[in-house]
Write a protein that binds this DNA or RNA. Structure first.
Length: 724
RNA sequence: GGUCGUAUAGCUCAGUUGGUUAGAGCGCACCGUUCACAUCGGUGAGGCCUCUGGUUCGAGUCCAGAUACGACCACCA
């Protein structure tokens, strides 16, 4: 068959993916001699079900697919488990927005069950879209093992995990100050908060003999403690515990002097009043000195009766009115209108965070428990140990390796050393419901509802990261001790962006070491963020988004994949410009034309060749050296170096030098056949080396070689043998 | 405030353990092409590897300091 002059990726890619899927080899159990192969596993970070493929997905899919294809060709039983994430808060928020816009309804117009069903429908409808896009990237994952964070097996895993931790006393319920989102009526984790810069007014108010500063006068009604640093000489005449009568917003109150070292003497006047129920620092001070804690603002952001005449007003509207009143009473010293500060908002829905004290569920990271199995080196079975100690141990001892190396420091300094109890409850309805039931003051925790009448299930759901933390083993069938679990866990590599090292990686280590007594993975490879050519973050508002789907249509998946790994090392951000992708399309085309030339000039051949000329010797030596370098680079996760090596070798050494030399050599009858054999030998090896990076074009060419009888027994390059 | 990172060609970036003439993509200049490929070929210009000091026979690479950027975490009433 005559090959076209240019390689046309869009024509070939869909066909090739179908060919792979039909072969069944994405499922490692179907690989030739499957049980004789060593298992190798990667769990895919599940993309958001409601999401659309972006360059971040494109990058991680490329890197993981490179690893999986490489190891599959090296004879491993390579399993890549795909999945999707319910992304609870984000998904529920989207559905709520849509309901409000289209039908002017809120979630309270539905029963809990109806609403959850609506959200689930929405999620599953979108799942199809993102999965098709994952396939477009060429991902060779095992679709027969597809997992969804809210499907039955995962529900069982989550409930079991909760129950085990509950029974060990690692999960407890308590009142804590949480990040409350009045808009979505839920608690938000620290990590989900997005800080926004804001210029606002800062008020200096007369509070008895003091001037206090505040940006939030609407919280000040109940302030009956005035706090200053014990070393602050300006206020040395006041003693801790002194009582002072103060004329305040709604009349006279008695205020108590508190001396606390957390007060910054440099800031404002060095004196502040506290609102423990609505501020984290104030809450800590109140706890330290055992002070009264009084709620001022309700869960909807409305003022409570303590506000007197302002009761029932929304905080935002009340603020100017309160200032007006304070001014009328002569209590406003001055107002600074250019006060810069940062406002906490919910990144998953945009509400402004209002700290509130709520009863929540927590995982205790410092409480010791007996570890169940002894598979972690250095920790014996039955040893009493706390989560935070395990987290430190497994990375310190090298049982989990983090690439790039310097991220280990971040892991310790910023996370493990500062780990606080993890608040796992959320007040949304879409997600895994807390498996706890109550009846007349009795509490029951179990995988299923307790027998008997009158039990009421806890209304809260679990933080998304609770189920995500189980991901490496819940996707393999845990809590059943399945063959998959035995064969594939611990998994080999966890590949993700450094931006969620702490969200996710830490929780996975926590869950896996606790529930299985195993590390979840041996290596964590952290890639950088994809940025535009000016190193700017890609965002819709900047208009600098590169849409991977559009790129695929124009340049092909292979070009995108190669461009993404071509000049980047672990952990550093990746500037991606369209020019680069275009260049990689040229490379795919170059390879196509090299193949075309060889197909035109080479007949069926056997495999024996020898180095007859200097050019023969050079190219064969350089091929050997390239194979060694590329194999080593892939083993060490240096994808960019492997990519650059194969690019150089193919274009410079092979196309520009040897293919040119081969032309006169093939005119010489004494050299002709041997040269043909070398051409085909080198081409086959290039295709194999390049396959993990550019799977489509290499498979397409492979199929043409097959038709001419130029490759041996392997149907697909995907399962051909790596020569390294 | 705490932690970490980066600085190499016009632009964007590679450069594994210190070891010949420091590389790539894009861009640029000139020449060429009915030949597998113009999505091409050939030739070429362009680098005190941020600065200062140190270790070493030898430093882009290791150490200390300076300068400039960047990221993350915490968060100030």
């Amino acid at each position: 068959m005559e090959l076209s002059k240019t390689y046309n990726p869009t024509e070939e890619e869909a066909k090739i993916y179908e060919l792979w899927e039909k072969s069944g080899y994405f499922n490692p159990d179907n690989l030739p001699d499957a049980q004789g192969r060593r298992p190798y596993a990667i769990t895919m970070p599940p993309p958001n079900v409601t999401g659309v493929l972006h360059v971040g997905h494109a990058l991680f899919l490329t890197i993981q697919d490179i690893l999986i294809r490489f190891e599959r060709m090296r004879g491993k039983r390579a399993l890549w488990v795909p999945g999707t994430d319910s992304a609870a808060i984000a998904t529920q928020a989207k559905v709520e927005n849509e309901l409000y816009k289209k039908e002017n309804k809120t979630r309270r117009d539905f029963s809990r069950e109806e609403f959850v069903a609506l959200v689930n429908d929405y999620a599953l409808k979108h799942q199809h879209i993102i999965l098709e896009q994952v396939k477009k990237m060429g991902a060779s994952c095992d679709w027969s093992r597809l997992a969804y964070t809210l499907d039955e097996p995962r529900n069982l895993a989550v409930a079991t995990a909760f129950k085990n931790m509950f029974e060990d006393g690692l999960i407890y319920r308590g009142n804590r100050l949480v990040n409350w989102d009045p808009k979505l009526q839920t608690n938000v984790s620290d990590e989900e908060i997005e800080w926004k810069d804001e210029t606002t007014s800062f008020y200096y108010l007369k509070y008895g003999p003091f001037i206090i500063g505040t940006a939030r006068p609407e919280t000040k009604f109940g302030d009956k403690y005035v706090v200053m640093h014990p070393d602050d000489k300006r206020y040395s005449q006041f003693k801790h515990g002194d009582q002072i009568d103060v004329e305040w917003i709604n009349g006279k109150i008695t205020s108590t002097v508190i001396k606390d070292e957390s007060v910054d003497m440099e800031f404002g006047t060095g004196v502040m009043t506290i609102t423990p129920a609505h501020d984290a620092t104030d809450y800590d001070i109140a706890k330290r000195h055992n002070l009264d804690i009084e709620q001022i603002i309700d869960l909807k952001g409305l003022l409570l009766p303590i506000a007197g005449e302002f009761e029932g007003q929304h905080i935002k509207k009340a603020r100017p009115l309160i200032i007006e009143k304070l001014q009328a009473k002569g209590l406003v010293e001055k107002i600074d209108d250019k006060y810069q500060h940062r406002l906490a908002t919910n990144s998953r829905g945009g509400g402004i965070i209002e700290p509130q004290i709520r009863e929540q569920w927590f995982v205790d990271v410092n409480k010791k428990f007996k570890i169940k199995t002894g598979e972690i080196t250095g920790i014996s079975q039955g040893e009493e140990i706390a989560i935070v100690q395990i987290l430190r141990h497994v990375v310190e001892s090298g049982q989990i390796n983090i690439i790039p190396e310097y991220h280990k420091k971040i892991y310790f300094n910023q996370w493990v050393d500062n780990l606080k109890d993890w608040c796992i409850s959320r007040q949304i309805v879409f997600g895994h419901r807390i498996p706890v039931w109550y009846k007349n003051g009795e509490t029951y925790c179990g995988v299923t509802a307790p027998e008997g009448e009158g039990w009421e299930q806890d209304p809260d759901t679990l933080d998304t990261w609770f189920s995500s933390g189980l991901w490496t083993f819940s996707t393999l069938g845990w809590p059943e001790k399945t063959k998959d679990l035995v064969d594939f866990h611990p998994t080999d590599v966890l590949e993700t962006g450094y931006d969620i090292l702490f969200f996710w990686v830490v929780r996975m280590i926590l869950m896996s070491t606790y529930h299985l007594g195993q590390v979840p993975f041996k290596t964590v490879y952290l890639h950088g963020l994809v940025r535009d050519k000016d190193r700017q973050k890609m965002s819709k508002s900047k208009g600098n988004i590169i849409d991977p789907l559009g790129v695929i249509d124009t340049y092909g998946t292979d070009a995108l994949r190669f461009a993404l790994v071509f000049s980047t090392s672990a952990g550093t951000d990746i500037p991606l410009a369209e020019d680069k992708i275009k260049g990689m399309k040229h490379f795919a085309n170059k390879l196509w034309n090299i193949s075309r030339f060889i197909l035109m000039n080479v007949e069926k051949t056997d495999w024996r060749y020898e180095a007859k000329t200097k050019a023969d010797k050079d190219i064969l030596e350089k091929l050997d050296s390239a194979i060694k370098k590329i194999t080593n680079n892939l083993e060490e996760f240096r994808f960019h170096e492997a990519a650059q090596e194969i690019y150089q070798f193919t274009w410079t050494e092979f196309a520009d030098v040897y293919v040119e030399t081969s032309k006169p050599q093939m005119q010489n009858e004494a050299l002709k056949e041997n040269t043909q054999k070398i051409l085909i030998h080198v081409l086959i090896n290039i295709l194999k080396l390049l396959h993990p990076f550019m799977p489509f074009v290499t498979e397409t060419i492979w199929q043409h070689l097959r038709k001419q009888g130029l490759v041996g027994k392997d149907d697909l390059i995907m399962i051909s043998k790596w020569n390294g």
